[in-house]
Deep mutational scan, measured.
Amino acid sequence: GPIITTQVTIPKDLAGSIIGKGGQRIKQIRHESGASIKIDEPLEGSEDRIITITGTQDQIQNAQYLLQNSVKQY
């Protein structure tokens, strides 16, 4: 399918649970989903961080599912 980009906003407090120790968790999510995932640095004074996910519809759905699971375990 076509490559698309979607953005998800997360509270910055949850960023740690998604990134994992030394970036292990986010690497695993990238690997498992096949999507490209970029977590922006939090904006000055903002409570949120923006996650940019790029890939096919399937890859993005996979990545979103894995991201949600990471947050739930936290």
Rank of each mutant, 00 (worst) to 15 (best):
A35N: 00
I51E: 01
K21T: 13
D40N: 09
I26Q: 05
G45P: 09
G45T: 10
K27I: 11
S33I: 06
L14W: 04
I51L: 08
P11D: 09
R49S: 11
I4E: 02
D13T: 10
G1D: 13
A63G: 03
R30P: 03
L66S: 05
G55Y: 00
A63Y: 02
V71D: 14
Y74N: 11
I19E: 04
P42F: 06
I18H: 07
Q59L: 01
G20A: 14
Q28H: 05
T6I: 02
V71C: 10
R30V: 12
G34A: 05
I29E: 01
R49T: 13
I50C: 13
I60E: 02
T9G: 09
A63K: 00
R25F: 05
H31T: 12
I4L: 02
Q64I: 01
V8I: 07
P42S: 04
I10H: 01
T9S: 11
I39Y: 08
S46C: 07
G22D: 07
E41L: 08
S33G: 01
I18W: 06
G23H: 08
I39G: 02
D48Y: 05
S70V: 06
L67R: 00
P11R: 08
G1M: 05
P42H: 15
G45V: 07
S36T: 14
S33Q: 01
G20F: 05
E41C: 05
Q59C: 12
T9D: 08
G20D: 14
R49Q: 10
E32R: 05
T9P: 08
A63T: 04
Q61F: 04
R25V: 05
D48M: 07
D40H: 06
P42M: 07
H31G: 12
T56D: 11
I50W: 03
K27R: 12
V71G: 11
Q73S: 14
Q28F: 14
N69C: 14
I18Y: 10
L66Q: 13
I10Y: 13
T5N: 15
I26D: 08
H31E: 14
G55F: 00
T5M: 04
D40L: 08
G20C: 11
I39L: 10
S70L: 14
S36D: 08
N69F: 03
T5F: 03
D13A: 06
D40M: 05
S33A: 06
A63V: 04
R49V: 13
I4Y: 03
L14I: 10
N62Y: 03
G55E: 00
N62T: 12
K72D: 15
L67S: 01
L43R: 07
S36G: 11
T56V: 04
E44S: 10
Q61A: 09
I3G: 05
L14E: 11
G1Y: 02
I18C: 02
Q59M: 02
I10V: 15
H31Y: 04
T54W: 04
E32L: 03
T56Q: 08
Q73Y: 13
Q64R: 11
D58I: 06
T6A: 03
R30H: 11
G16Y: 04
E44K: 13
T54D: 09
Q73L: 06
G16T: 14
G1S: 02
A63W: 01
G1I: 15
K27Q: 15
Q28S: 10
T9Y: 01
A63L: 01
E44M: 14
N62K: 09
S33V: 03
E41D: 05
K12F: 08
A35Y: 01
I60P: 00
G16D: 13
E32T: 08
I39W: 12
G16K: 09
T56L: 07
Q24N: 14
A15H: 05
K72W: 02
T9A: 11
K72E: 15
I37M: 11
I37L: 12
K38I: 08
Q7C: 02
I29P: 01
A15I: 02
T54V: 09
T6F: 01
T52Q: 15
G45L: 07
R49I: 02
L43S: 11
T54E: 14
D58L: 12
